[in-house]
Protein backbone atom coordinates (compact mmCIF):
# COMPACT_ATOMS: atom_id res chain seq x y z
CA UNK A 1 0.00 0.00 0.00
CA UNK A 2 1.35 3.36 -0.96
CA UNK A 3 0.41 6.78 0.28
CA UNK A 4 1.80 9.86 -1.34
CA UNK A 5 0.80 12.56 1.08
CA UNK A 6 2.47 15.73 -0.01
CA UNK A 7 4.47 17.26 -2.79
CA UNK A 8 2.74 15.35 -5.55
CA UNK A 9 1.68 17.73 -8.26
CA UNK A 10 2.42 17.26 -11.92
CA UNK A 11 4.83 19.79 -13.36
CA UNK A 12 4.35 19.60 -17.10
CA UNK A 13 7.41 21.31 -18.55
CA UNK A 14 9.57 20.73 -15.49
CA UNK A 15 11.71 17.67 -15.00
CA UNK A 16 13.29 16.73 -11.70
CA UNK A 17 16.77 15.24 -11.95
CA UNK A 18 18.38 13.49 -9.06
CA UNK A 19 22.14 13.06 -9.29
CA UNK A 20 24.58 11.38 -6.96
CA UNK A 21 27.96 12.98 -7.33
CA UNK A 22 31.29 12.46 -5.63
CA UNK A 23 31.68 14.80 -2.72
CA UNK A 24 34.60 16.61 -4.34
CA UNK A 25 35.27 20.35 -4.23
CA UNK A 26 34.05 22.02 -7.40
CA UNK A 27 31.51 19.37 -8.32
CA UNK A 28 28.58 21.81 -8.14
CA UNK A 29 30.51 24.12 -10.45
CA UNK A 30 31.04 21.27 -12.92
CA UNK A 31 27.31 20.54 -13.01
CA UNK A 32 26.08 24.13 -13.11
CA UNK A 33 28.80 25.11 -15.60
CA UNK A 34 27.58 22.43 -17.98
CA UNK A 35 24.03 23.83 -17.86
CA UNK A 36 25.32 27.33 -18.45
CA UNK A 37 27.59 26.59 -21.38
CA UNK A 38 25.17 24.31 -23.18
CA UNK A 39 22.27 26.69 -22.66
CA UNK A 40 20.00 24.42 -20.61
CA UNK A 41 17.60 26.10 -18.20
CA UNK A 42 17.67 25.25 -14.51
CA UNK A 43 14.86 26.44 -12.29
CA UNK A 44 16.34 25.26 -9.04
CA UNK A 45 19.47 23.41 -8.01
CA UNK A 46 20.15 22.14 -4.54
CA UNK A 47 23.06 20.15 -3.19
CA UNK A 48 23.39 18.42 0.14
CA UNK A 49 25.24 15.74 2.03
CA UNK A 50 23.86 12.20 1.98
CA UNK A 51 23.98 9.26 4.39
CA UNK A 52 27.30 8.35 2.73
CA UNK A 53 30.01 10.99 3.21
CA UNK A 54 31.54 10.11 -0.19
CA UNK A 55 28.50 11.44 -2.01
CA UNK A 56 26.55 14.60 -2.48
CA UNK A 57 23.04 14.55 -3.87
CA UNK A 58 22.20 17.26 -6.36
CA UNK A 59 18.56 17.81 -7.23
CA UNK A 60 17.82 19.88 -10.29
CA UNK A 61 14.60 21.18 -11.70
CA UNK A 62 15.08 21.57 -15.41
CA UNK A 63 12.79 23.56 -17.65
CA UNK A 64 12.27 21.81 -20.94
CA UNK A 65 9.50 20.37 -23.06
CA UNK A 66 11.91 18.72 -25.38
CA UNK A 67 12.58 15.02 -24.88
CA UNK A 68 15.73 15.21 -27.00
CA UNK A 69 17.14 18.07 -24.98
CA UNK A 70 16.36 16.15 -21.82
CA UNK A 71 18.26 13.09 -23.05
CA UNK A 72 21.16 15.34 -24.08
CA UNK A 73 21.23 16.82 -20.59
CA UNK A 74 21.35 13.36 -19.01
CA UNK A 75 24.05 12.17 -21.41
CA UNK A 76 26.17 15.27 -21.00
CA UNK A 77 25.84 15.13 -17.20
CA UNK A 78 26.81 11.45 -17.25
CA UNK A 79 30.11 12.44 -18.85
CA UNK A 80 31.17 14.48 -15.82
CA UNK A 81 33.61 12.18 -14.07
CA UNK A 82 32.31 13.01 -10.59
CA UNK A 83 28.69 12.25 -11.51
CA UNK A 84 28.12 8.64 -10.47
CA UNK A 85 24.39 8.20 -10.97
CA UNK A 86 21.71 10.29 -12.53
CA UNK A 87 18.04 9.79 -13.24
CA UNK A 88 14.83 11.63 -13.97
CA UNK A 89 12.28 11.29 -11.20
CA UNK A 90 8.93 10.11 -12.42
CA UNK A 91 6.56 12.92 -11.46
CA UNK A 92 3.78 10.47 -10.61
CA UNK A 93 5.92 8.47 -8.24
CA UNK A 94 8.02 10.99 -6.44
CA UNK A 95 7.86 13.48 -3.63
CA UNK A 96 9.24 16.92 -4.20
CA UNK A 97 9.55 19.34 -1.37
CA UNK A 98 11.10 22.72 -0.89
CA UNK A 99 11.50 24.95 2.11
CA UNK A 100 10.55 28.60 2.07
CA UNK A 101 11.16 31.46 4.50
CA UNK A 102 9.29 34.72 4.05
CA UNK A 103 9.59 38.02 5.89
CA UNK A 104 6.24 39.82 5.66
CA UNK A 105 5.56 43.46 6.52
CA UNK A 106 2.96 43.17 9.29
CA UNK A 107 1.89 46.29 11.16
CA UNK A 108 1.09 45.63 14.87
CA UNK A 109 -2.67 46.18 14.40
CA UNK A 110 -2.85 43.37 11.81
CA UNK A 111 -0.49 40.96 13.60
CA UNK A 112 -3.21 38.67 14.99
CA UNK A 113 -4.95 38.47 11.66
CA UNK A 114 -1.65 37.56 9.98
CA UNK A 115 -0.67 34.92 12.52
CA UNK A 116 -4.06 33.20 12.26
CA UNK A 117 -3.91 33.21 8.50
CA UNK A 118 -0.37 31.87 8.35
CA UNK A 119 -1.16 29.20 10.92
CA UNK A 120 -4.19 28.08 8.92
CA UNK A 121 -1.88 27.73 5.94
CA UNK A 122 0.55 25.46 7.79
CA UNK A 123 3.26 28.06 8.22
CA UNK A 124 5.43 28.19 11.30
CA UNK A 125 6.31 31.51 12.82
CA UNK A 126 10.03 31.99 13.37
CA UNK A 127 10.32 35.63 14.33
CA UNK A 128 7.99 38.46 15.23
CA UNK A 129 9.41 41.96 14.94
CA UNK A 130 7.92 45.43 15.41
CA UNK A 131 6.56 45.62 11.90
CA UNK A 132 7.46 42.24 10.44
CA UNK A 133 6.98 38.50 10.84
CA UNK A 134 9.15 35.72 9.46
CA UNK A 135 7.33 32.50 8.67
CA UNK A 136 8.42 29.24 7.12
CA UNK A 137 6.65 26.54 5.16
CA UNK A 138 7.57 23.46 3.21
CA UNK A 139 5.85 21.66 0.39
CA UNK A 140 5.86 21.36 -3.34
CA UNK A 141 6.66 24.46 -5.36
CA UNK A 142 2.98 24.71 -6.28
CA UNK A 143 1.88 24.36 -2.61
CA UNK A 144 4.18 27.17 -1.63
CA UNK A 145 3.07 29.40 -4.48
CA UNK A 146 -0.52 28.81 -3.42
CA UNK A 147 0.29 29.65 0.20
CA UNK A 148 1.91 32.90 -0.82
CA UNK A 149 -1.15 33.75 -2.85
CA UNK A 150 -3.33 33.35 0.26
CA UNK A 151 -1.15 35.80 2.17
CA UNK A 152 -1.00 38.27 -0.67
CA UNK A 153 -2.74 40.91 1.46
CA UNK A 154 0.57 41.32 3.27
CA UNK A 155 3.58 42.80 1.49
CA UNK A 156 6.70 40.64 1.30
CA UNK A 157 9.95 42.26 2.50
CA UNK A 158 12.11 39.36 1.44
CA UNK A 159 11.86 35.71 0.63
CA UNK A 160 14.17 32.75 0.27
CA UNK A 161 13.50 29.23 -1.00
CA UNK A 162 15.79 26.20 -1.01
CA UNK A 163 14.84 24.77 -4.34
CA UNK A 164 13.45 21.29 -4.65
CA UNK A 165 14.65 18.26 -2.77
CA UNK A 166 13.14 15.08 -4.11
CA UNK A 167 12.82 11.38 -3.42
CA UNK A 168 11.09 8.52 -5.15
CA UNK A 169 8.06 7.15 -3.34
CA UNK A 170 9.18 3.52 -3.14
CA UNK A 171 10.83 1.04 -0.78
CA UNK A 172 14.14 0.97 -2.64
CA UNK A 173 16.75 3.67 -3.00
CA UNK A 174 16.09 5.40 -6.29
CA UNK A 175 19.72 5.59 -7.32
CA UNK A 176 22.18 3.15 -5.79
CA UNK A 177 25.43 4.64 -4.64
CA UNK A 178 28.30 3.27 -6.60
CA UNK A 179 31.87 4.37 -6.32
CA UNK A 180 33.19 1.79 -8.77
CA UNK A 181 35.97 2.96 -11.04
CA UNK A 182 34.17 3.82 -14.20
CA UNK A 183 35.55 6.13 -16.77
CA UNK A 184 33.07 7.70 -19.10
Amino acid sequence: MEYILKGHITMSHKKVLSALVRNHPGVLQRVSGLFYRRGYNIETISACATENPKFTRITLVVLTNDELEMSQIIRQLSKIQDVRRIAILDTARSIRIELMMVKFRVEPERRTEFLMLSCRNHMNTLYVGDTSVIVTASGSTEDLDETLEKLSAFPIIEQTRTGISAMEASDRPFVEMDDAEFIN
Partner: peptide, 8 residues
Amino acid sequence: IDAAEFDK
Protein backbone atom coordinates in the same frame (compact mmCIF):
# COMPACT_ATOMS: atom_id res chain seq x y z
CA ILE B 1 31.86 5.67 -28.37
CA ASP B 2 30.28 8.75 -26.83
CA ALA B 3 26.53 8.38 -26.30
CA ALA B 4 26.19 12.14 -25.84
CA GLU B 5 26.87 12.55 -29.58
CA PHE B 6 23.73 10.59 -30.46
CA ASP B 7 20.88 12.83 -31.65
CA LYS B 8 22.87 15.92 -30.62
